[in-house]
Design a protein around this nucleic acid. Structure first.
Length: 313
DNA sequence: TGTTATGTACATGCGGTTGC
DNA sequence: GCAACCGCATGTACATAACA
């Protein structure tokens, strides 16, 4: 079956999620919760899952790998958001990847590196949303892609036992088309208190692109985020901590103005926080020419076959 | 002025990833 | 396969504001 390089990456990204112990332990419970919210499988219902993700996440609270007891629970939240976003973005040009070196094109990874003096500090291991250019090569069969390395040699499309040569090819394509790529970093946190200053500060650093006096720099000489078509930084929280969230809460103020916006897994609260389902319209509107809803409606019937790796049906 | 309520910051221990 | 490193969540201590 033919597959685009974009859908190849999406499948790899989702398979990676399911390989995590944390996800495996939670998935059967989450799946039941998610299916409850989908009486009928259509784009509106799938997108509206965003209003219920916090409840889905909390449903695995008490069974040993609880978000309350075990540190590292943030992994579970990140994975859930990653799964949800990729489902909603099916067949669009945007893929959300939980930070894994092998899956992120090198040029993009380098553009996100923040250096403090001589030491590079990579961005934290959060989600990276990559919107690929609207070009023929990304829409066709991945095995038909003709890409060349720095020496001008054609890169073979498969290596080893017929494995798609993803890393080499995507590095080459991302290098050539760098200025047509859009990148969104999505910082996931389960709580919403002082930790909100982390995304706030990172957003400032990225927005400033470094402070020469303090030898802080963003990206490498070859790849800068300002050369991307678009860059955004977003914050998505559950949140697990108690408390009221109003326009005046410090934690809210901290993330209210970050470039990609702030979201949670519940219904939007005007002036305070958006439901995570709004992230598509706000940050990834260019990912499809006919709109997220229409694209998704066309893709959903294939969920039981071609896209069975989502393990929803 | 003393007490209570609210909000913010810190310290600890553990899981996941990456490099060797 | 192993070990080191990095980032995460929670509980609690601390600071300040509100109130009697």
């Amino acid at each position: 079956m033919s597959q685009t390089i974009i859908e190849h990456l999406r499948k790899e990204a989702i398979n990676h999620l399911f390989s995590l112990d944390t996800v495996q332990n939670c998935w059967s419970i989450w799946k039941a919760q998610i299916q409850q919210q989908l009486p009928d499988l259509n784009a509106i219902n799938v997108l509206d899952l965003g209003d219920h993700l916090s409840n889905v996440f909390r449903s695995t609270g008490g069974n040993g790998r609880g978000q309350g007891e075990v540190s590292g629970g943030g992994t579970a939240w990140e994975a859930l958001i990653c799964w949800y976003m990729n489902l909603c973005l099916l067949e669009s040009r945007t893929v959300v990847v939980k930070f894994k070196k092998r899956l992120i094109p090198t040029p993009i990874r380098e553009a996100l590196i923040v250096s403090y003096g001589a030491s590079p500090t990579s961005t934290e291991s959060d989600l990276v949303a990559i919107t690929f250019p609207e070009k023929e090569i990304y829409a066709g069969n991945k095995l038909d892609i003709v890409a060349r390395d720095h020496a001008g040699q054609i890169i073979p499309t498969t290596v080893g036992r017929n494995r798609f040569n993803y890393e080499k090819i995507i590095d080459s394509l991302a290098d050539i088309d760098f200025s047509d790529y859009e990148v969104g970093v999505i910082q996931c946190k389960t709580n919403w208190n002082d930790s909100a200053q982390i995304p706030m500060l990172w957003d400032m650093v990225y927005a400033s692109e470094g402070f020469s006096r303090n030898q802080i720099s963003v990206g490498t000489s070859a790849y800068k985020i300002r050369n991307l078509r678009k860059f955004s930084y977003s914050f998505v929280t559950v949140p697990t901590n108690k408390g009221s969230f109003t326009q005046n809460t410090l934690a809210v103020k901290r993330v209210q103005n970050i470039s990609g916006g702030n979201y949670w897994g519940q219904a939007s609260q005007p002036g305070v926080v958006y439901s995570v389902k709004e992230i598509f319209g706000r940050n990834f509107s260019s990912s499809t020419s006919i709109g997220t809803r229409a694209t998704l409606n066309a893709a959903l019937p294939k969920l039981s076959q071609e896209y069975s790796y989502f393990d929803l049906i």
